[in-house]
Design a protein around this nucleic acid. Structure first.
Lengths: 334, 334
DNA sequence: ATGAAAGCGCTAACAT
DNA sequence: ATGTTAGCGCTTTCAT
């Protein structure tokens, strides 16, 4: 990489002259500017990012800590973050906490050494279960803003972007009730997470509001064989006619299992799950889905963070943005 | 963030004393070391990463450019890269090219300004189609090593990690032939990519080696309705008894469609596709898969790059590592 | 045992 | 119009 120093030497001028010329300073003579720019072009000069960061005490880099990149929703949010950040000239450093509290703490610590200007993160499962938030608070105290999305720690004071999880299952459940379904089951393999709980509550509320219905919640452990669990659910409860699934794979597997057992979907059984467009196409009939607008969530989070980073003024109050889900009717409901 | 300067001031010693004390230099007195370390601990001092990078001319950061983070295989590779990098104390800056040549060039340019010590990337679709490689060469010439994985540019001199794509479909096809299948079709929605072509060739070779069989290749465009395309394939060709799919969604949709049309899988029809464990469980019967060991690919790529970054010695010859796929028998084959 | 000073690449206030 | 200098935070060589 060429430096100002080298350019200056070759042109027989001072470093600051070169710097000013490249930054279109009025101070420098036309002819000099031309010569400098020509040589810079020739050598493909780029200002050293690290030197700029040190000088400005700004890295133009965002730290993103996500629990699991193989989760399609989270991957999609990351996509949204990257695109928005890139639009504003920011890079993203990605750390994967792998749902571990320790890794989450480490990543935060590691990047809070001047590597990034702020963080966007979704809380790891372990952290949510243990309800640990001190590491977030410490980071914020150190002057590094955090924006949390989806899985947030409600008692940490920072910007947040969340999904209307409660409402989404509440409404989805109600739509099945309106179809005339009488035995609606809720399936979840994320019952430990804040969002999983909210989704469960939304379902429960909708069911309980109809005094003649009974809530049934099936919790599937990650390590269990989903196909097996769902199959035995159907075998034990022959009268199930509706399913709300809190996660994608449960809903797709539910459709496949039902079809394989000879149940007519959606004639005898309606199924709704959280999934993206491409995922809903993997099921046949295509899954009626609750869309979370993951990319938007990422973009909003990035926007919030960048605003906060660049806002040198008085500390604004923290914001919580709610991104509403959309219920997209496909073939797995009436 | 506390700096050495602040610590030095508070302790009434010089900056260099503090620096040495923290780095366990023999030069500094026991008592001083103790005092310094105590205060550093108290203030939670961390050496400023940016300053270190500038000083050492090393960022301990890897630039990763992937075409699409919503592709599960690529996401998984990213996961592998992150884990391996993190093990060696490296961070990763992720850029998403979105299959666009322009974005790929920009990302490379943008990070080649001292932000990273090297790159790991998979070539964007557009770059592969247009066969553009100059930007890779430029980057390498600038002294930044590149490791390519999966979709590689064969005429760029750099380390590569690839999958034995040709062999994997060749072997998979042969296994269906050995099952006694007579009408084996190849389905692909990645026919434009280097890996897609190799997979197609592997299939063709296996078929052609059996003079009594005919190759049939179905290419599905990304924007088409996969379910519709595959359904009409089955309707037009009633005698299909084997499918090799080059991509995950084609294979899962093929199973669902077949089951919905009343075909017995695997009795009348065997299906093999590229997919991960969790994806193969989405189909019922579970998909027999070609596993690509994405995480390993990521880890190997990271390892290669880090070695090359740290190897100040004579330029070693570039390496191409081939990660062999595994054919995992599930329920969609005999 | 401790400190001063230079230098990594850059910008900007301050000379000339 | 051009140059000198200081400083961002750190390490390291060279005084003292």
């Amino acid at each position: 990489m060429v430096t100002l120093k080298q350019l200056a030497k070759e042109l027989n001028v001072s470093i600051s002259t070169v710097s000013k010329a490249l930054n279109n300073s009025e101070e420098i003579g036309e002819e000099t500017v031309r010569r400098v720019k020509e040589l810079a072009q020739l050598y493909n000069y780029r200002p050293n990012k690290v030197a700029l960061s040190l000088k400005n005490n700004k890295t133009k880099t965002i730290g993103v800590i996500i629990p699991n990149i193989l989760n399609r929703f989270l991957a999609k949010v990351l996509f949204g973050i990257e695109r928005e950040a890139s639009k504003h000239g920011y890079n993203i450093i990605t750390c994967i906490s792998n749902e571990s509290l320790t890794k989450e703490k480490e990543s935060l610590q590691l990047l809070a050494n001047g590597s990034v200007d702020g963080f966007i993160l979704s809380v790891a499962e372990e952290s949510q279960i243990k309800n640990e938030v001190e590491h977030f608070r410490n980071t914020i105290t150190q002057g590094l803003p955090i924006v949390m999305f989806d899985r947030v720690a409600h008692d940490v004071l920072c910007d947040k972007v969340i999904v209307d999880d409660f409402d989404s299952t509440y409404n989805a459940t109600k739509s099945l009730i309106e179809e005339g379904r009488k035995h609606i089951v809720f399936i979840s393999n994320i019952y430990d997470l804040s969002v999983g709980k909210l989704r469960e509550h939304g379902y429960n509320k909708a069911i309980i509001e109809n005094s003649n219905l009974q809530p049934t919640v099936i919790r599937i452990k990650k390590e269990d064989d989903h196909q097996q669990e769902i199959k035995s659910l159907f075998k034990k409860n022959k009268n199930i006619d509706g399913i709300i699934a809190a996660d994608t794979s449960s809903s797709i597997i539910a459709i496949n299992t039902a079809v394989n057992l000879g149940l007519k979907v959606p004639k005898q059984l309606s199924i709704i799950g959280f999934a993206s467009k491409s995922e809903s196409d993997l099921a046949m009939p295509k899954l009626t889905t609750i869309r979370q607008h993951a990319k938007d969530i990422g973009a909003i989070a990035a926007e919030l963070l960048i605003k906060r980073i660049q806002n040198t003024g008085p500390t604004e109050d923290v914001k919580t943005k709610i991104v509403k889900t959309t219920l997209v009717k496909n073939e797995s409901t009436l």
